[in-house]
Amino acid sequence: MIKFRHFLLVSILSILVYACGGDDNGSSIDNFDHAAQALKDNDSLVSFLKKHYYDVDLDSVKPLIVGKTPLFDDAKLMTEEITETINDIDIDYKLYYYVVRYGDPVPTPEPGKENPSVVDSVYVSYYGQRIVNTDSLSVSFDNNEYVWWTLSGVIKGWSYGFSHFKGGENVTDNGPITYDNGGKGVLFIPSGLAYGNTGSYPILSNEPLLFYIDLFDFVPETDIDQDGVASIFEDIDGDGKPWNDDTDGDGLANLFDTDDDGDGVLTKNEDANGNGNPRDDFNDPNNPTIPDYLNINIR
Rank of each mutant, 00 (worst) to 15 (best):
K68L: 01
L151N: 04
L215G: 00
I91H: 03
S11F: 05
P291G: 14
E84M: 08
N206M: 06
I15N: 00
L16S: 12
F233P: 02
T79C: 12
L49F: 07
D180G: 06
L39W: 00
G262S: 09
D257Y: 02
G21F: 05
F218I: 06
V219I: 14
G262L: 03
N31M: 11
D261E: 06
F48S: 07
D292G: 07
I290H: 02
P63C: 09
P107M: 07
K113C: 07
D24H: 05
L49D: 02
D217T: 07
Y179W: 14
P70D: 15
K40I: 08
N287G: 06
A253Y: 02
V66Q: 10
D250F: 02
S28F: 08
N31K: 12
G228P: 04
S138L: 00
D250G: 11
I236H: 01
Q226K: 12
N206S: 14
N181G: 00
P288S: 15
V124C: 05
G238D: 04
K166F: 04
L9E: 08
Y160C: 05
G161D: 08
G238R: 10
Y98C: 05
L187E: 04
L16V: 11
F7K: 10
L294V: 09
D59P: 03
L294R: 15
I131G: 05
D225P: 03
L215P: 00
S140E: 12
V118I: 14
G22M: 13
G26E: 03
N174L: 13
T222V: 03
K268A: 13
E207G: 08
Y146M: 15
D24W: 02
D257G: 09
D227K: 08
K94V: 06
K40N: 04
Y96E: 05
N269S: 14
G112S: 15
F216M: 00
N181F: 00
N254M: 08
V186I: 11
P107S: 10
I86K: 10
V61M: 12
T222Y: 01
P176A: 13
D260I: 15
G21K: 04
I2H: 04
T258K: 11
V122G: 01
S231C: 09
N287W: 04
A194W: 06
K184A: 02
D260Y: 02
S11T: 14
F48G: 03
D250C: 09
V139A: 12
E110G: 10
A38G: 01
D88C: 03
M78F: 05
D292F: 06
E207D: 13
Y179T: 07
P111V: 15
N275T: 11
K113W: 00
K40G: 02
R299N: 15
E84W: 06
V46F: 00
E81T: 15
L45K: 10
L8D: 11
S47V: 02
D59G: 11
P242I: 15
S14D: 07
Y54T: 07
G196D: 02
L187C: 09
K113T: 12
G183R: 07
T267Y: 01
V122A: 04
D280Q: 06
I213F: 00
G182D: 09
D260V: 15
P63G: 07
F211L: 08
